[in-house]
Design a protein around this nucleic acid. Structure first.
Ligand SMILES: [Mn+2]
Ligand SMILES: [Mn+2]
Ligand SMILES: [Zn+2]
Ligand SMILES: [Zn+2]
Lengths: 141, 141
DNA sequence: GTTGAGATTGAGACTAAGTCTCGACTACTG
DNA sequence: CAGTAGTCGAGACTTAGTCTCAATCTCAAC
Protein backbone atom coordinates (compact mmCIF):
# COMPACT_ATOMS: atom_id res chain seq x y z
CA UNK A 1 0.00 0.00 0.00
CA UNK A 2 1.49 3.31 -1.08
CA UNK A 3 1.77 6.32 1.18
CA UNK A 4 -0.94 7.92 -0.88
CA UNK A 5 -3.28 5.01 -0.44
CA UNK A 6 -2.62 5.08 3.30
CA UNK A 7 -3.32 8.75 3.46
CA UNK A 8 -6.53 8.39 1.51
CA UNK A 9 -7.79 5.56 3.70
CA UNK A 10 -7.00 7.54 6.78
CA UNK A 11 -8.88 10.53 5.41
CA UNK A 12 -11.90 8.46 4.49
CA UNK A 13 -11.91 6.64 7.82
CA UNK A 14 -11.73 9.85 9.79
CA UNK A 15 -14.83 11.08 8.01
CA UNK A 16 -16.84 7.89 8.30
CA UNK A 17 -16.54 7.33 4.58
CA UNK A 18 -16.05 3.90 3.08
CA UNK A 19 -13.20 2.41 1.14
CA UNK A 20 -14.74 1.10 -2.04
CA UNK A 21 -13.29 -0.51 -5.16
CA UNK A 22 -14.40 2.52 -7.17
CA UNK A 23 -12.54 4.94 -4.92
CA UNK A 24 -9.44 2.80 -5.06
CA UNK A 25 -9.67 2.62 -8.82
CA UNK A 26 -9.88 6.40 -9.03
CA UNK A 27 -6.90 6.84 -6.75
CA UNK A 28 -4.84 4.34 -8.71
CA UNK A 29 -5.70 6.06 -11.97
CA UNK A 30 -4.81 9.46 -10.54
CA UNK A 31 -1.44 8.20 -9.35
CA UNK A 32 -0.73 6.98 -12.84
CA UNK A 33 -1.22 10.38 -14.41
CA UNK A 34 1.57 12.90 -14.78
CA UNK A 35 0.86 16.57 -15.15
CA UNK A 36 -2.46 18.32 -15.23
CA UNK A 37 -5.65 16.48 -16.09
CA UNK A 38 -9.37 17.05 -16.27
CA UNK A 39 -12.09 15.03 -14.59
CA UNK A 40 -13.16 13.77 -17.96
CA UNK A 41 -9.71 12.58 -18.96
CA UNK A 42 -9.63 10.67 -15.72
CA UNK A 43 -13.04 9.19 -16.37
CA UNK A 44 -12.00 8.06 -19.83
CA UNK A 45 -9.06 6.19 -18.38
CA UNK A 46 -11.26 4.43 -15.90
CA UNK A 47 -14.05 3.62 -18.27
CA UNK A 48 -12.54 0.45 -19.63
CA UNK A 49 -10.77 -0.72 -16.47
CA UNK A 50 -12.18 -3.08 -13.96
CA UNK A 51 -13.34 -2.01 -11.49
CA UNK A 52 -14.48 1.09 -13.32
CA UNK A 53 -16.13 4.21 -11.94
CA UNK A 54 -18.95 6.32 -13.28
CA UNK A 55 -18.57 9.96 -14.11
CA UNK A 56 -20.46 10.89 -10.95
CA UNK A 57 -18.11 8.82 -8.83
CA UNK A 58 -15.06 10.29 -10.52
CA UNK A 59 -16.23 13.79 -9.64
CA UNK A 60 -17.18 12.77 -6.13
CA UNK A 61 -13.90 11.00 -5.50
CA UNK A 62 -11.85 13.87 -6.87
CA UNK A 63 -13.37 16.05 -4.20
CA UNK A 64 -12.25 13.66 -1.52
CA UNK A 65 -8.78 13.47 -3.02
CA UNK A 66 -8.59 17.25 -2.94
CA UNK A 67 -9.90 17.22 0.62
CA UNK A 68 -7.19 14.79 1.66
CA UNK A 69 -4.49 16.92 0.08
CA UNK A 70 -3.44 14.26 -2.40
CA UNK A 71 -4.71 16.19 -5.37
CA UNK A 72 -4.76 19.88 -6.14
CA UNK A 73 -7.54 21.46 -8.13
CA UNK A 74 -6.12 24.14 -10.32
CA UNK A 75 -7.83 26.83 -12.25
CA UNK A 76 -6.11 27.10 -15.60
CA UNK A 77 -8.89 29.02 -17.30
CA UNK A 78 -10.91 27.46 -20.07
CA UNK A 79 -14.11 25.81 -19.05
CA UNK A 80 -12.93 22.66 -17.39
CA UNK A 81 -11.31 22.36 -13.99
CA UNK A 82 -7.86 20.83 -13.94
CA UNK A 83 -6.33 18.63 -11.28
CA UNK A 84 -2.85 17.49 -10.50
CA UNK A 85 -1.18 15.04 -8.26
CA UNK A 86 -0.03 16.96 -5.23
CA UNK A 87 1.49 14.39 -2.95
CA UNK A 88 4.95 15.49 -1.84
CA UNK A 89 4.75 18.64 -3.91
CA UNK A 90 4.43 22.22 -2.86
CA UNK A 91 2.35 25.15 -3.95
CA UNK A 92 3.12 26.67 -7.31
CA UNK A 93 1.45 28.79 -9.96
CA UNK A 94 1.25 28.52 -13.74
CA UNK A 95 2.23 30.07 -17.03
CA UNK A 96 -0.14 28.91 -19.74
CA UNK A 97 0.76 29.02 -23.41
CA UNK A 98 -2.05 30.24 -25.63
CA UNK A 99 -0.29 28.72 -28.63
CA UNK A 100 0.42 25.11 -27.76
CA UNK A 101 -1.30 24.79 -24.41
CA UNK A 102 1.90 24.06 -22.57
CA UNK A 103 1.74 24.63 -18.84
CA UNK A 104 4.85 25.85 -17.09
CA UNK A 105 4.96 25.85 -13.32
CA UNK A 106 6.61 28.53 -11.28
CA UNK A 107 7.20 29.33 -7.66
CA UNK A 108 8.15 32.68 -6.31
CA UNK A 109 8.70 33.15 -2.65
CA UNK A 110 8.92 36.88 -3.24
CA UNK A 111 5.52 37.06 -4.90
CA UNK A 112 3.95 34.99 -2.16
CA UNK A 113 5.37 37.34 0.44
CA UNK A 114 4.09 40.40 -1.37
CA UNK A 115 0.69 38.74 -1.53
CA UNK A 116 0.77 38.31 2.20
CA UNK A 117 1.52 41.95 2.68
CA UNK A 118 -1.26 42.99 0.34
CA UNK A 119 -3.60 40.89 2.48
CA UNK A 120 -2.27 42.40 5.68
CA UNK A 121 -2.85 45.89 4.34
CA UNK A 122 -6.47 45.05 3.69
CA UNK A 123 -6.90 43.02 6.86
CA UNK A 124 -7.77 40.13 4.65
CA UNK A 125 -7.26 36.52 5.73
CA UNK A 126 -6.15 34.64 2.66
CA UNK A 127 -7.30 31.08 2.29
CA UNK A 128 -6.00 30.31 -1.16
CA UNK A 129 -5.04 32.03 -4.33
CA UNK A 130 -4.83 31.51 -8.03
CA UNK A 131 -2.21 33.22 -10.09
CA UNK A 132 -1.94 32.41 -13.75
CA UNK A 133 -0.15 34.13 -16.57
CA UNK A 134 -1.34 33.64 -20.14
CA UNK A 135 0.91 34.22 -23.11
CA UNK A 136 3.24 32.42 -25.46
CA UNK A 137 6.00 30.03 -24.60
CA UNK A 138 9.48 30.01 -26.05
CA UNK A 139 8.45 27.75 -28.91
CA UNK A 140 5.35 29.74 -29.80
CA UNK A 141 6.58 33.32 -30.12
CA UNK B 1 -21.63 61.95 -26.64
CA UNK B 2 -19.35 60.69 -23.90
CA UNK B 3 -15.73 59.78 -24.44
CA UNK B 4 -16.72 56.18 -24.04
CA UNK B 5 -19.36 56.39 -26.69
CA UNK B 6 -16.85 58.03 -29.00
CA UNK B 7 -14.33 55.35 -28.37
CA UNK B 8 -16.87 52.61 -28.97
CA UNK B 9 -18.04 54.12 -32.24
CA UNK B 10 -14.50 54.47 -33.39
CA UNK B 11 -13.79 50.85 -32.56
CA UNK B 12 -16.89 49.64 -34.35
CA UNK B 13 -16.22 51.83 -37.37
CA UNK B 14 -12.66 50.63 -37.69
CA UNK B 15 -13.90 47.05 -37.85
CA UNK B 16 -16.72 47.64 -40.28
CA UNK B 17 -19.25 46.99 -37.52
CA UNK B 18 -22.46 48.98 -37.21
CA UNK B 19 -23.70 51.33 -34.59
CA UNK B 20 -27.09 49.97 -33.62
CA UNK B 21 -29.61 51.00 -30.98
CA UNK B 22 -29.03 47.71 -29.20
CA UNK B 23 -25.29 48.30 -28.96
CA UNK B 24 -25.85 51.79 -27.69
CA UNK B 25 -28.30 50.53 -25.11
CA UNK B 26 -25.77 48.00 -23.87
CA UNK B 27 -23.06 50.64 -23.63
CA UNK B 28 -25.33 53.02 -21.76
CA UNK B 29 -26.34 50.30 -19.33
CA UNK B 30 -22.72 49.32 -18.75
CA UNK B 31 -21.76 52.91 -18.02
CA UNK B 32 -24.48 53.06 -15.42
CA UNK B 33 -23.13 50.13 -13.45
CA UNK B 34 -20.56 50.50 -10.72
CA UNK B 35 -18.35 47.64 -9.68
CA UNK B 36 -18.28 44.13 -11.04
CA UNK B 37 -21.22 42.69 -12.90
CA UNK B 38 -22.20 39.58 -14.81
CA UNK B 39 -23.60 39.36 -18.32
CA UNK B 40 -26.89 38.26 -16.89
CA UNK B 41 -27.17 41.19 -14.50
CA UNK B 42 -26.59 43.44 -17.44
CA UNK B 43 -29.22 41.65 -19.49
CA UNK B 44 -31.75 41.99 -16.68
CA UNK B 45 -31.22 45.73 -16.60
CA UNK B 46 -31.77 46.00 -20.30
CA UNK B 47 -34.73 43.70 -20.48
CA UNK B 48 -37.32 46.29 -19.60
CA UNK B 49 -35.66 49.28 -21.24
CA UNK B 50 -36.35 50.55 -24.70
CA UNK B 51 -34.52 49.83 -26.82
CA UNK B 52 -33.76 46.52 -25.19
CA UNK B 53 -31.25 43.86 -26.18
CA UNK B 54 -31.47 40.11 -26.21
CA UNK B 55 -29.21 37.90 -24.20
CA UNK B 56 -27.30 36.99 -27.37
CA UNK B 57 -26.74 40.63 -28.16
CA UNK B 58 -25.62 41.39 -24.63
CA UNK B 59 -22.98 38.69 -24.85
CA UNK B 60 -21.94 39.76 -28.31
CA UNK B 61 -21.72 43.42 -27.39
CA UNK B 62 -19.75 42.73 -24.23
CA UNK B 63 -17.10 41.14 -26.39
CA UNK B 64 -16.85 44.28 -28.47
CA UNK B 65 -16.67 46.41 -25.36
CA UNK B 66 -13.83 44.29 -24.09
CA UNK B 67 -12.19 44.50 -27.49
CA UNK B 68 -12.37 48.26 -27.43
CA UNK B 69 -10.85 48.40 -23.97
CA UNK B 70 -13.90 50.00 -22.37
CA UNK B 71 -14.72 46.96 -20.32
CA UNK B 72 -12.52 44.45 -18.60
CA UNK B 73 -13.51 40.81 -18.28
CA UNK B 74 -12.39 39.52 -14.95
CA UNK B 75 -12.17 36.01 -13.69
CA UNK B 76 -13.39 36.02 -10.11
CA UNK B 77 -13.96 32.27 -9.92
CA UNK B 78 -17.40 30.88 -9.60
CA UNK B 79 -19.10 29.89 -12.80
CA UNK B 80 -20.02 33.22 -14.28
CA UNK B 81 -17.65 35.66 -15.92
CA UNK B 82 -17.53 39.13 -14.41
CA UNK B 83 -17.02 42.40 -16.16
CA UNK B 84 -16.19 45.87 -15.01
CA UNK B 85 -16.05 49.30 -16.47
CA UNK B 86 -12.46 49.92 -17.37
CA UNK B 87 -12.43 53.33 -19.00
CA UNK B 88 -9.80 55.52 -17.39
CA UNK B 89 -8.81 52.80 -14.99
CA UNK B 90 -5.69 50.73 -14.80
CA UNK B 91 -4.94 47.09 -14.29
CA UNK B 92 -5.56 45.66 -10.87
CA UNK B 93 -6.19 42.31 -9.23
CA UNK B 94 -8.71 41.11 -6.65
CA UNK B 95 -9.20 39.83 -3.13
CA UNK B 96 -12.48 37.94 -2.93
CA UNK B 97 -14.26 37.34 0.36
CA UNK B 98 -15.67 33.84 0.70
CA UNK B 99 -17.95 35.08 3.47
CA UNK B 100 -19.81 38.05 2.08
CA UNK B 101 -18.63 38.09 -1.51
CA UNK B 102 -16.99 41.46 -1.20
CA UNK B 103 -14.41 42.20 -3.85
CA UNK B 104 -11.39 44.26 -2.90
CA UNK B 105 -9.12 45.57 -5.60
CA UNK B 106 -5.38 45.78 -5.25
CA UNK B 107 -2.44 46.89 -7.32
CA UNK B 108 1.13 45.96 -6.66
CA UNK B 109 3.83 47.28 -8.89
CA UNK B 110 6.28 44.97 -7.13
CA UNK B 111 4.24 41.87 -7.87
CA UNK B 112 3.84 42.86 -11.49
CA UNK B 113 7.58 43.29 -11.81
CA UNK B 114 8.28 39.93 -10.26
CA UNK B 115 5.82 38.42 -12.68
CA UNK B 116 7.75 39.94 -15.52
CA UNK B 117 10.95 38.44 -14.28
CA UNK B 118 9.33 35.03 -13.87
CA UNK B 119 8.28 35.29 -17.50
CA UNK B 120 11.72 36.37 -18.58
CA UNK B 121 13.27 33.40 -16.81
CA UNK B 122 11.03 31.07 -18.77
CA UNK B 123 11.30 33.02 -22.01
CA UNK B 124 7.58 33.42 -21.84
CA UNK B 125 5.78 36.33 -23.49
CA UNK B 126 2.97 37.30 -21.15
CA UNK B 127 -0.23 38.50 -22.74
CA UNK B 128 -2.41 38.81 -19.65
CA UNK B 129 -2.71 37.42 -16.19
CA UNK B 130 -5.23 36.71 -13.50
CA UNK B 131 -4.30 36.92 -9.87
CA UNK B 132 -6.97 36.43 -7.29
CA UNK B 133 -6.80 35.78 -3.59
CA UNK B 134 -9.67 34.07 -1.82
CA UNK B 135 -10.25 34.40 1.89
CA UNK B 136 -12.15 36.41 4.44
CA UNK B 137 -12.44 40.15 4.65
CA UNK B 138 -12.11 42.23 7.79
CA UNK B 139 -15.82 41.91 8.56
CA UNK B 140 -15.98 38.16 8.02
CA UNK B 141 -13.13 36.74 10.13
C1' DG C 1 -20.32 -15.52 9.97
C1' DT C 2 -24.64 -12.70 9.83
C1' DT C 3 -26.90 -8.57 9.92
C1' DG C 4 -28.63 -3.90 9.49
C1' DA C 5 -27.73 1.03 9.39
C1' DG C 6 -25.94 4.02 6.76
C1' DA C 7 -22.82 5.00 2.91
C1' DT C 8 -22.19 4.46 -2.10
C1' DT C 9 -23.08 3.58 -6.72
C1' DG C 10 -24.51 4.44 -11.77
C1' DA C 11 -27.79 5.97 -15.17
C1' DG C 12 -29.57 9.53 -16.67
C1' DA C 13 -32.28 13.76 -15.67
C1' DC C 14 -31.14 18.29 -14.70
C1' DT C 15 -28.77 22.99 -14.38
C1' DA C 16 -26.24 26.97 -15.59
C1' DA C 17 -23.62 29.78 -18.55
C1' DG C 18 -22.81 30.70 -22.69
C1' DT C 19 -22.74 29.83 -27.96
C1' DC C 20 -24.82 28.97 -32.33
C1' DT C 21 -28.32 29.06 -36.05
C1' DC C 22 -31.07 31.18 -39.23
C1' DG C 23 -34.78 33.85 -41.22
C1' DA C 24 -36.25 38.57 -40.75
C1' DC C 25 -34.55 43.15 -40.36
C1' DT C 26 -31.57 47.38 -40.74
C1' DA C 27 -27.40 50.49 -41.06
C1' DC C 28 -24.59 52.32 -44.10
C1' DT C 29 -22.40 53.25 -48.88
C1' DG C 30 -22.72 54.80 -53.25
C1' DC D 1 -33.11 55.07 -52.15
C1' DA D 2 -31.35 50.53 -53.27
C1' DG D 3 -28.30 46.84 -52.46
C1' DT D 4 -25.23 44.60 -49.47
C1' DA D 5 -23.48 43.29 -45.52
C1' DG D 6 -23.93 43.33 -40.86
C1' DT D 7 -27.26 42.55 -37.00
C1' DC D 8 -31.08 41.04 -34.51
C1' DG D 9 -33.88 37.78 -31.39
C1' DA D 10 -35.86 33.31 -30.26
C1' DG D 11 -34.77 29.35 -29.02
C1' DA D 12 -32.07 25.10 -29.99
C1' DC D 13 -27.79 23.44 -28.58
C1' DT D 14 -23.38 22.54 -25.93
C1' DT D 15 -20.55 21.69 -22.09
C1' DA D 16 -19.18 20.78 -17.49
C1' DG D 17 -20.71 19.47 -13.68
C1' DT D 18 -24.48 18.33 -10.08
C1' DC D 19 -28.41 15.91 -8.43
C1' DT D 20 -31.77 12.07 -7.78
C1' DC D 21 -33.00 7.68 -6.37
C1' DA D 22 -33.46 2.78 -6.33
C1' DA D 23 -30.31 -0.95 -5.98
C1' DT D 24 -26.13 -2.34 -3.80
C1' DC D 25 -22.33 -2.48 -0.79
C1' DT D 26 -19.29 -1.71 3.48
C1' DC D 27 -18.27 -2.40 8.01
C1' DA D 28 -18.97 -2.56 12.94
C1' DA D 29 -21.67 -4.88 16.10
C1' DC D 30 -23.32 -8.95 17.34
MN1 LIG E 1 0.78 22.56 -11.62
MN1 LIG F 1 -11.94 45.10 -10.37
ZN1 LIG G 1 3.52 27.26 -26.60
ZN1 LIG H 1 -16.51 39.38 3.76
Amino acid sequence: MSDQEGRFREYLGAKGLRITPERQAVLTAVLGIQGHFTADQLYLRLERKNPRASRATVYRTLEHLVGSGLVDKVDLGGQQAFYENFYGREHHDHLICLGCGEIIEFTSRAIEELQDSVCREHQFEARSHSHKILGHCRKCH
